[in-house]
Design a protein around this nucleic acid. Structure first.
Ligand SMILES: [Zn+2]
Ligand SMILES: [Zn+2]
Ligand SMILES: [Zn+2]
Ligand SMILES: [Zn+2]
Lengths: 130, 130
DNA sequence: AACGCTGTGTAATAATATAACATATTTAAG
DNA sequence: CTTAAATATGTTATATTATTACACAGCGTT
């Protein structure tokens, strides 16, 4: 609750929109929706999205090229994301699993690589779609 | 060693190219390279890529929109992929870690979702780039 | 006042991926 | 062997996703 205040006008408009959706939104659908607020060009959207991703307010679902709000109020974890994605209805949920996070955080490869971020996407069928 | 034989002409051309590279290739760079072999259009490349991904011969690096050959000769695991990605030199390596695979395979969320696939991408700096 | 930093606005374009249509080839069944 | 289904091809056009380049505005620091 310290960075929220410093968001710019465009960043606020776009974060608001994404937070109102419980599902990921695509950049050009966001653009369409915020045109009434005076945001006219893709670049204005992408600039805001990039910033919001950077500060952890939203996450990008890489396999879907879409953006979802982070619901975790303590989310310092733009750098450690896990999602479940239903391949039928495309429902996306962010997962916070302590044990899994631990395993991922502690993972070491055999090449001496220094990790600072990961993204994990699970795919399958949700309860409704099985 | 049973599906290799059934690959079509275009699929073979494109798999060969990707296998010769130890790093991920992008679709339009592949297109450029295979034009001399008579493949002229993006769709011809994407169709082959999609098939090769499906049968596990290659994987898509989602965060990079690029495709890398699977080096695991027993790879039935198009559906369980882990990569490390250097954010400086963009070097990508597929990771096969038994313990990590187990944790991921056994992961259950609290929503009763039925998983059949996952993709995990680690980001950081490789030894050379630290 | 001069500078660095961040954000805005706009136009143009690059990069990634698919739709639609016609045809060919391979496979499996009758 | 014939037919039908499934898979692959070739081509054109188009959709979708994302960035480059340029001009300028606002703010805090020195
Ligand atoms: Zn989050
Ligand atoms: Zn579903
Ligand atoms: Zn593999
Ligand atoms: Zn590196």
């Amino acid at each position: 609750m310290q960075k929220q205040e410093t968001l710019s006008k465009n960043q606020k408009i776009i974060l608001d929109l994404i937070e109102k959706s419980d599902q990921p939104l695509k950049a050009y659908s966001i653009l369409f929706d915020v045109k009434k607020k005076g945001i006219n060009a893709p670049l204005q959207v992408y600039r805001a999205l990039n910033k919001l991703v950077k500060i952890g307010k939203i996450h990008k679902i890489e396999s879907r090229n879409a953006f979802i709000a982070c619901k975790n109020s303590k989310c310092q974890i733009a750098k450690a994301t896990v999602f479940s994605i239903c391949e039928s209805c495309e429902d996306v949920t962010e997962i916070h699993d302590h044990k899994l996070s631990e395993h991922l955080r502690d993972f070491k490869d055999n090449k001496g690589m220094k990790y600072n971020k990961y993204n994990l996407e699970f795919f399958g069928l949700c309860k409704k779609c099985v």
